[in-house]
Simulated scan of single mutants.
Amino acid sequence: MIKFIRSEVKRIYGVEIPLDREHIVGHYQINPVTKPNCPGSEFQFDAIIAALKGSESSTGNQGNSASGTVLYRVQVGAYGVKANAEKTLEAIKAKGYDTMLVQVGNLYKVQVGAYSKKENADNMAAKLKADGFDTFITTQGGTTVSVESASASITVGSKVKIKSSAAKYSTGQAIPDWVKNNTYTVQQLGDGKVLLKEIVSWVNISDVSLV
């Protein structure tokens, strides 16, 4: 959204909005009276700005900011298969964290935040660990890649199919191939997963698609 707004402002008015905290602001900075907490203390301004700068950089040195400042990122896994990285990303989002998926070579890495102070990265890592995620701090970024999030549109009653790339139910058992050829009804929503009525099974929400 920010990228689109910047491109439209530049196209219409010929003005390029700088990528910094002076120009990328929250509602609380514009209207502190009626929106004092928008978008919230955990909103990842630094991560968003770093990702936008990274997408515009042609140098490939996306671990640092444009000014050369080292950015500390909290990483939660690195995967050779994008679908597996998306599962972790969905699970983190289900806990209320803002996260991103970046690619470095053949690996897809799930990262939370991009902090100029390591202390802030350490604090975020501690929160994620408390929620059950294994983390470590890295200064290596990557190329931001898009994620097809199913959670935004799937609701109770939605008709879905299990993706052919799905390997296991959210409970850990293997998903047989014949299950992937049918249409199912979402009976219940969970944290990053859905309960399918016809087979009475929980499936990761990243492993289903709307029919």
Rank of each mutant, 00 (worst) to 15 (best):
I2E: 03
F4L: 09
F4W: 02
F4H: 02
R6L: 04
S7Q: 07
S7M: 08
I12W: 12
Y13N: 14
G14T: 03
R21G: 13
R21V: 08
R21M: 05
I24L: 13
G26N: 03
H27D: 11
Q29V: 00
I30W: 03
N31E: 11
N31G: 06
N37C: 09
P39T: 03
P39Y: 04
P39C: 11
E42S: 15
A50N: 11
A50K: 01
L52G: 09
G54W: 00
S55D: 12
S55P: 12
S57M: 06
T59I: 05
G60Q: 04
N64F: 07
A66Y: 03
G68E: 13
L71V: 03
R73H: 11
R73S: 10
G77K: 05
Y79M: 01
A83D: 13
T88L: 09
T88S: 10
T88Y: 06
T88A: 14
L89E: 06
E90D: 10
E90L: 02
I92S: 09
I92L: 08
K93Y: 00
A94G: 01
V102R: 01
Q103A: 04
Q103I: 01
Y108T: 04
K109S: 12
G113N: 13
Y115G: 13
Y115I: 12
Y115L: 08
Y115A: 05
E119Q: 13
N120S: 09
N120H: 10
N120C: 06
A121P: 12
D122P: 08
N123W: 07
N123G: 10
A125E: 00
A126W: 01
K127R: 05
L128N: 05
A130E: 06
D131I: 06
D131T: 09
F133N: 05
F136H: 10
T139K: 03
T139S: 10
Q140Y: 09
G142V: 05
V145R: 10
E148R: 04
S149G: 15
A152N: 10
V156N: 04
G157F: 05
S158V: 06
K159F: 03
K159W: 03
K159Q: 11
K161L: 02
I162T: 07
K163R: 08
S165W: 09
S165N: 06
S165L: 06
A166D: 07
A166W: 00
A167H: 03
S170Q: 02
T171W: 01
Q173N: 04
Q173V: 04
Q173A: 14
D177M: 09
W178S: 14
W178I: 07
W178R: 04
N181W: 14
N181R: 06
N182E: 15
T183R: 07
T183V: 15
T183A: 11
Y184M: 08
T185C: 14
V186C: 12
Q188I: 09
K193V: 02
V194I: 07
V194S: 02
K197V: 00
E198A: 01
V200I: 07
S201M: 13
W202S: 02
V203C: 11
D207P: 00
V211Y: 00
V211R: 04
